[in-house]
Write a protein that binds this DNA or RNA. Structure first.
Lengths: 235, 235
DNA sequence: GCAAAAGTGTTAGAGATACACCCATGT
DNA sequence: ACATGGGTGTATCTCTAACACTTTTGC
């Protein structure tokens, strides 16, 4: 073992995940009932400590998988919370991640071990520590990022309709867009593959399904040009 | 003292600062010769440990002030580096910040205690640990942020000319913009106050000085509309 | 007068907005 | 047939890009 930095403080390092989902109506977040003391039983974000031989990214994946059973989920580190008093138990640094998951895939793997529940981002219970601030910051970051990166697809099933995609954007930006312009711009990105079948649950005419063109997706994450009409006035 | 989380690992937590400056020609970063073992004497970012009663933001300010003497500097936390092996001495989490300072103000307060030196972002020495990755990430983040937020002013003196501002943008984006369009767009933000005097050092005609309208600045940080011509193709 | 850099003007084209209209289908 | 939501068409307007042109001043 190598020598150590002497006379320096050491702190526990945690990861907390803001898990976003979309049920077709509202943007939601996944909350759990805390299993640890202190504040056992109170609602909180899904979190855990960073173990000895893993990075924070790995910790976030591990923790999300233990809750949802899902792997290869879109996750992004967005901010590290370090206020000395943020955790009442002992000083803990928390590296916060947001995750975007398809709410239906989650249901396949649901585990009751954590008493997890979805809440609308507009109406959720009080959370422990600084977790409410984390949610706020995560939402802002999601809005900011999604103006220029095609990431909101991660919240939808493999097959989705344009009206559904639009309502997701509208919910994320708490705003409403012209459907004609939205579809034209969306299709002009070249990211969508039109399917043969339609979704008839929402209307009589039915709306075509689309899939994401995953081949081009990686390179084109940034090819959302001006889907959000006036990003500067919103953000 | 409160009870502790038992059986959890604890790590030293550091802050590292990528300090950006602009000398009128090139975007630069400030590097120091490392004072600690291991790797004493090698070039590195300015950094330090987060002390018991301060947040990471406070630590970053303290560390920057100790190096440059400057306070109230623009600083932004942008990423936390957590690879288990990133520090060869012992496992250390590093919360990275970038700072934007007026290179001339720094000179007033220069302290030789740290053997600090400015290097072009395009040509700087090998750095310890993962500090080169930090610089890369910081530069990308600066580029990304500055497409939609008026922060590059922080790199300039109080009074500056449009040509200087433009050359800064060009250097940050490694690209060149049309001067006519640049000045029209820049002035249309309403962020600049034209001064009476001109800078005659750069040309015979002389270029008017401008100041930032600090009253509106806070609210209008985001009012950079499309100063960078094709951000999506660059970023 | 000429060179050099600052700054203004202009035009063609692209893209955005708003809104009207058409389409497909279940009842 | 008609109501409903999906989807298309289009006129107008604004913004951008490109580049030509004018201005100012030192030499």
């Amino acid at each position: 073992m190598a020598a150590k930095y002497s006379n320096q403080s050491r702190y526990t390092v945690a990861v907390d995940c803001i898990v976003f989902g979309y049920d077709g109506q509202n943007l939601k977040i996944l909350l759990v009932k805390r299993a640890l003391t202190p504040l056992k039983g109170r609602w909180s974000l899904m979190g855990g400590f960073v173990a000895k031989n893993e990075s924070a990214d790995q910790a976030a994946s591990r923790i999300l998988a233990s809750l949802t059973g899902l792997k290869d989920v879109y996750q992004e580190q967005f901010y590290t919370f370090t206020d000395p008093g943020r955790d009442s138990q002992e000083r803990t640094i928390s590296i916060a991640y947001f995750s975007l998951i398809d709410i239906k895939k989650y249901k396949e793997f649901i585990s009751d071990a954590y008493h997890a529940e979805w809440f609308s981002i507009k109406d959720f219970p009080n959370l422990i520590f600084d977790h409410e601030e984390m949610v706020k910051t995560a939402k802002k970051r999601l809005q900011y990022k999604a103006t220029s990166h095609a990431i909101l697809f991660e919240l939808l099933p493999d097959k989705f309709t344009l009206p559904l995609l639009q309502s997701l954007f509208e919910d994320v930006y708490e705003s409403s867009f012209d459907k004609g312009n939205f579809s034209r711009k969306m299709l002009s990105t070249g990211l969508l593959l039109k399917q043969r079948d339609k979704d008839k649950t929402g209307s009589k005419k039915g709306a075509y399904f689309y899939k994401l063109d995953r081949k081009n997706y990686q390179q084109n994450l940034h090819k959302i040009l001006k889907l959000v009409p006036n990003p500067n006035s919103i953000l």
